[in-house]
Design a protein around this nucleic acid. Structure first.
Length: 282
DNA sequence: ACCACATCCTGTTAGC
DNA sequence: TGCTAACAGGATGTGG
């Protein structure tokens, strides 16, 4: 599924391709993909026609096509979404719900499960997305996790997936970061020691940067804006490796459900440490 | 404020 | 072999 590295890989390509180009037509826009938007599908089509793209930005897993008017188009790929730039002559895949035409080029959003989202963001209006710190920015570190996890009883895995705390982590990189930091996914977020949070912050940065270098992880649906799969799946340690030997200690990787999401971990490298209970009020 | 759970959706896989 | 059912999961809404 597209998480921060995958969305950033797409952003990087489109950011070099689209600025300076104008939208000749909105060939297709499925109203069912337009969610929590101040403008409906028809209005968006009208507002976009003739507009020039000036930038392509990313925040967490969200993409923003900035227009010359100061307005922007918000795009989210959900879990099965693809955003591909190709010739208008190329066959249109099924489940393609948005087509922006720039001359001979088309940018197409294809999303079988429709978990993605298209929304209009008027000039001067903040998009209605609640996002925490960018994990690859200099603002993210041990202190971020201390603030975010303090007093939280939820599993650290669940906390990592909370976009309001950290923007851009999904199931793959949350599991990979916890493995790298040797932390069990079911540990209460608030029970982590400062040293563990330091390791986790560094691990988050590492797994995201590593995936970016490999143009993202293609597990099922993800391809980049050129339609090419990423290469990072070869470097995963736990995600999707249930029953396979740990790359570090050969113990079998386990899968448990945490907060309704499958979590993969090595029971030896990520032992369920005795939780350090600070309070014993009773 | 915090947290658990349901909802959206459809391709894939497991089970009978 | 063919059908049905369970499963996957990001963000959001609801209810406790």
């Amino acid at each position: 599924m597209p998480e921060l590295p995958e969305v950033e890989t797409i952003r990087s390509y489109l950011g070099g391709l689209l600025p300076g180009k104008s939208i000749d037509a909105v060939v297709r826009i499925d109203p069912r993909m337009v969610k929590r938007s101040p403008a409906d599908a028809e209005a968006i089509a009208n507002l976009l026609s003739g507009r020039e793209v000036i930038a392509v930005d990313r925040r967490g897993k969200f993409l923003f096509l900035r227009m010359d008017t100061g307005d922007a188009l918000l795009l989210h790929l959900g879990m099965s979404g693809r955003l591909v730039a190709e010739s208008r002559e190329a066959p249109v895949p099924i489940h393609t719900h948005l087509i922006l035409r720039f001359g001979d080029l088309e940018v197409r959003l294809t999303d079988p499960r429709r978990f993605g989202r298209v929304a209009w963001v008027p000039k001067g209006v903040q998009p209605d997305v609640q996002l925490g710190v960018e994990p690859l920015s200099r603002h993210f570190g041990t202190k971020t996790l201390q603030d975010a996890f303090h007093g939280r009883r939820v599993a650290v895995k669940t906390a990592l997936l909370n976009q309001q705390l950290i923007a851009g982590l999904g199931n793959i990189y949350a599991d990979e970061a916890l493995f790298r930091a040797n932390i069990h996914p079911e540990r209460a977020a608030g029970s982590l020691t400062v040293e563990e949070m330091r390791r986790l912050a560094r691990a988050v940065k590492h797994v995201l940067r590593q995936s970016l270098e490999h143009r993202g992880t293609s597990f099922s649906d993800y391809v980049d804006a050129l339609g090419h799969p990423g290469e990072n799946q070869a470097y995963l340690h736990v995600y999707g490796r249930e029953g396979k030997p740990c790359r570090r200690c050969r113990q079998r990787i386990q899968r448990v459900v945490v907060g309704g999401r499958s979590s993969h971990f090595c029971p030896r490298c990520q032992a369920q440490q005795p939780s350090i209970t600070v309070r014993s009020a009773d």
